[in-house]
Structures are given as structure tokens and as C-alpha cells.
């Protein structure tokens, strides 16, 4: 390509717009990322429901201190619809709970993915609305992303749907044509998820910079020492005696959140910021006893990856495993490095 054509591309806004519109309507992007998020949300929810199994009636059922009458005031009247309004019965609460568990499993497995996304969302939303005291920001984010995921193709990989499609191909049936409108919806959903994550990080960091404790670098100390979040007092006491660690981590949390959107435009920024934000969320999950918040955030952070990143990661992992079992060839299926696809 010559310099003159490159310049022509930059200064032609019409061509940029059509390129953008073609990006949206010609090919489905980020199908692997969506599939990973699907599995991540599903597994996290299954895990959350199993951990809460013994106390489910105390939080969302007949014996909840947040009584059904209280819930009815906030539900329909408060504009928070929920399937729990239909009955205060303990058995009904259990039916909804186990239906959500089943939906989360089927969503994870990618069985009729789009339908399951709707079912999973409705049941998860209903559960959260039943007791607003028992939810957190991770649940809020997951609910919003799930709405966008209804418009996406989240079952293209590692799913029963994709298995079925492959089997159909193997029996000689023609490949199903991807409808353009579905492609536009899918790519728009991907953009919406990315934009939503950016909204989260930018607002969260801008709110923080207004706080005195985030400014003077001691916020982490106060968070770690608050009993609600002090799961491992022996560890946190050790951590917060080092000013450089407290101040460094406090500022890093703000800067990483503020700068994370740069990961979308620069691979170096991504290579630095994404591991940092993932470590931040893992540290929050482990040190502050917020495992499900942490998992939902980590999974949602995957929207900063592209399908090419996911395929490269697979090649690295496969290579690592192959080296590990070098003496036993044939164990690891051959994986080839992805070629750069035009427009990716």
C-alpha cells in the first residue's frame, strides 16, 4: 500500500463510515469472547447457587427476614418485576431457585443458547429483586450484560449448540446461513457490552478521585480494616503496615480503572492493564470475601479481549500442555495459530 492511498483513507470520512457499517454487518465478531463470558457467568451462578443452597430460604424464601410483604412493596410497586410476586410459598421459592440452577447449567452448556439466555436472565433478575439487600455491583453488571447477550450469538463455541451444528455439517446438511440482521444485532451487542464495561470503570474511578481517602492514598487501609471485608485479619494486618503497598495499591486501583478503556485501542496498554485489573479483582475476591462479585467482574473483563487473543491464548496453553506431556504425543490435539483476519 502506498502512502497516498493511506492518506486518502484517513481523510475520507465517508469511507470510514462505510467500513464501520461493514464491520457491523458482514461478519460476527467476538463470538469466542461471548462464549467465554457465557461459560463464566453460568459457572459463577451455579457456584453461587450451590454455596447458598443451605440458606436459600433465609435469603430468598419463606423464612427471609426481608419478608415477602416487604418485597411486594419494592417489586411491582417499585418497578422491580419478579416471578416471586406470584406466591409467598416456600415450595414456589424453591421451584424458582432450582429452575434458575437448571437454567444456569443449560446456559453454561450452550443448549438453545439464545432462549436459555432469556430464561436465565428472567430467573436471575427475579431472584435479585426478591431480596435487594443480598445483591452487589457484580450482580448488577451481570444483569445488564445478560440483556445485551440476548442479542448476541453466545453459543458459537464450546457449546451443545455448536456440537449440534457440527454434527449437522458432518451428515452433509448445508451450513445454516447467518442472517445479516442477526450479525448486526450480535456486533451491536458486543459494542454495547464493551461500552457498558467502560462506563463502569470510568465512572467508578471518577467517583473515587473525588474522595479524600483515595486522594491521600489510604483508602485501601480503611477498606481492609473494615470488619465486613476483613476476611483474613492476619494477612491484612501484614499488608497495611507498609505505606508503600497501601498507597501504591490505592492509586493503582484508580489509575487502572481510569485507563482500562485504553486497552481497547493499544495492545501494549492491554498487555499491562488487563493483568492488573484481573489481579485487582482476584485480590478483592480473596482478601475481602467477595467471591461472586470478583468472579462476575473477572468474567466481564474478558470483553477487553478479541477473538484473536482468545485463539492465541489457546495456542499458548496448548503449547504449554504439549511441552508438559512431551513424552506422550497425541494427547494434545493439534492447534494452529490463527491467521489475522481482515478487519479484526
Amino acid at each position: 500500500m502506498t502512502a497516498s492511498t493511506a492518506r486518502a483513507r484517513v481523510i475520507n470520512p465517508g469511507a470510514l463510515v462505510t467500513a464501520g457499517l461493514d464491520w457491523l454487518s458482514q461478519r460476527r465478531h467476538g463470538t469466542r469472547v461471548f462464549s467465554l463470558v457465557r461459560i463464566g457467568y453460568g459457572v459463577t451462578t451455579v457456584f453461587m447457587l450451590l454455596i447458598n443452597l443451605p440458606v436459600r430460604q433465609q435469603i430468598w424464601g419463606a423464612t427471609a427476614a426481608y419478608t415477602w410483604d416487604l418485597f411486594m412493596q419494592t417489586s411491582i410497586a417499585g418497578g422491580q418485576p419478579s416471578l416471586y410476586v406470584l406466591s409467598a410459598n416456600a415450595l414456589y421459592a424453591d421451584i424458582l431457585y432450582f429452575a434458575l440452577l437448571a437454567a444456569a447449567v443449560l446456559f453454561t452448556l450452550g443448549w438453545h443458547t439464545r432462549t436459555m439466555t432469556v430464561v436465565f436472565f428472567v430467573l436471575l433478575w427475579s431472584l435479585h429483586a426478591r431480596n435487594p439487600l443480598a445483591t452487589n455491583g457484580g450482580d448488577n453488571l451481570a444483569r445488564i450484560i445478560l440483556i445485551y447477550m440476548v442479542f448476541a450469538q453466545a453459543g458459537a463455541h464450546w457449546s451443545l449448540d455448536s456440537l449440534r451444528a457440527r454434527r449437522r455439517l458432518a451428515t452433509g446438511s448445508p451450513r445454516r446461513r447467518e442472517r445479516v440482521i442477526g450479525t448486526v444485532a450480535h456486533n451491536s451487542a458486543l459494542l454495547a457490552c464493551i461500552a457498558q464495561v467502560c462506563v463502569l470503570y470510568i465512572t467508578s474511578s471518577l467517583f473515587k478521585v473525588q474522595g479524600e481517602m483515595w486522594q491521600n492514598g489510604t483508602a485501601l487501609y480503611y477498606i481492609l480494616r473494615t470488619a465486613d471485608y476483613n476476611t483474613w485479619p492476619e494477612v491484612t494486618t501484614f499488608i497495611y503496615q507498609w505505606p508503600i503497598v497501601v498507597v501504591g495499591a490505592t492509586y493503582a486501583a484508580v489509575f487502572v480503572q481510569l485507563c482500562l478503556p485504553l486497552a481497547l485501542v493499544n495492545p501494549w496498554a492491554k498487555a499491562i492493564l488487563l493483568p492488573l485489573v484481573l489481579s485487582m479483582h482476584i485480590a478483592i475476591g480473596v482478601l475481602m470475601g467477595l467471591p461472586f462479585f470478583s468472579l462476575f467482574m473477572v468474567v466481564t473483563d474478558l470483553f477487553f479481549l478479541t477473538d484473536r487473543d482468545v485463539r492465541l491464548a489457546r495456542v499458548y496453553v496448548a503449547g504449554f500442555l504439549a511441552k508438559l506431556w512431551a513424552s506422550r504425543p497425541g494427547l494434545v490435539p493439534g492447534v494452529v495459530a490463527p491467521a489475522r483476519v481482515a478487519g479484526e
Partner: peptide
Amino acid sequence: MSPFFDQNWELFAPDPVSRD
């Protein structure tokens, strides 16, 4: 926005909790 896109990202902000 309400209720399905309601959101509040004042996570530990502007100042985090500092008392039990």
C-alpha cells in the same frame, strides 16, 4: 434506564467505608 439498566458504580467511592 429503570429498572433493567439501573446502575450505580460508586464502588467504595467517593470515600470507602471506614467504620464498622
